[in-house]
Design a binder for these strands. Sequence first.
DNA 1: TAAGCTAGTAATTAATTACTTACTATCGGG
DNA 2: CCCGATAGTAAGTAATTAATTACTAGCTTA
Lengths: 203, 203
Amino acid sequence: MESPRIRRSSEFRQAEIVQAVLALAAESSPADITTARIAAAMNLTQGAVFRHFPTKEAIWLAVAEWIEENLLGAIEEASLSSSEPLAQLRAMFCAHIGFAAAYPGAPRLIFHELQQPGDSAVKRRIRALLASYRGTLLQVLKCAKDGRAAGRELDVEPAATLFIGAIQGLVMQSMLAGGMRGVEEAAEGVFGVYLSGIVGRRT
Amino acid sequence: MESPRIRRSSEFRQAEIVQAVLALAAESSPADITTARIAAAMNLTQGAVFRHFPTKEAIWLAVAEWIEENLLGAIEEASLSSSEPLAQLRAMFCAHIGFAAAYPGAPRLIFHELQQPGDSAVKRRIRALLASYRGTLLQVLKCAKDGRAAGRELDVEPAATLFIGAIQGLVMQSMLAGGMRGVEEAAEGVFGVYLSGIVGRRT
DNA sequence: TAAGCTAGTAATTAATTACTTACTATCGGG
DNA sequence: CCCGATAGTAAGTAATTAATTACTAGCTTA
């Protein structure tokens, strides 16, 4: 059962470590992801991890960068899938939920980093991620308002906060349920209520 | 500056420890709240903490019970403040946000416990708390629907999820902002959008 | 083939963790 | 006024943590 000591490039291992962290975060608190657990998940010794990252902080930073690229990428792509603002919103919502379902560790890592005191490089990166996210969100919401797809009295700032909160609520519910099963269906319902709040009162 | 060794009853210290944990959780991740930090916050030695709680887990449990009593108490009270379902919802929302603003550590502790794997006594308690919360929420939402205050086509389950998510979104935003300043005002706006989603399309 | 770089291991480091133990000071009641 | 109970301290414990060490093995290339 002993592994015959596979050698891989540092680049490969770096990517592997990031994925291992995401996988570990999916089923345990980011706070107790140790370098030993990461190594064990890759069939490596603990010391080997430090051949590819100088410090643990660097690992978290790499994970944050991965999330930034992939989540923002998916959101961007979704926002370009249609010209109708409300359809864009739905696509973005689905993309985000899909991402969270595929990588349940990601939202936890984000939340965990944000509640750390002070500001590390990781935290700054996460903040930038969320600011960018909120930016495109506000843009789409403003479009919807200008194009009369949303209510004239809609306040876009709280609407963006509620959008993000809706996703967090679903993530939390999935943590209660103990898994991501059925989240996509629940997301459908939640987005329906949200959308109703966006379009406002109509005839 | 040396403290003259104040003696307090164990009951008093237990309550003090719970408050210390809540205060510490307000400005750092629950994961790195150590018994040493708790003791330091109370001007006590680390060993003294274990005079009043047999284990650290017992401390978390006591904190969970405190949150359960106080948060659910505030919510319950708010739900009784009116006979109109929508006014009840607003009161519950404000009560929850007020609680989160007064004890910013509380939502973090809840979230942190939920993402722990397996099920501890603490986690079970938190789950019970949230189930109870959701129960009264669903009750009020159903009332609103039956009394035609909410849209006939409203699905109460996602509506409850979105309600909780709305609060989480505000908590997250406050973590980004680095404080609870201005949350109450932001809450106003978010609840407005949420409410619009609940009442649905009207003439 | 020999040299040099790289990715691996195993063992060890200092620091930190929850928790314990032995002892001491203080309080309240007979 | 003393005495038992209790709340405190100081100094430990074993376990775990990130990071470092000395050494080994494999790949490429001159």
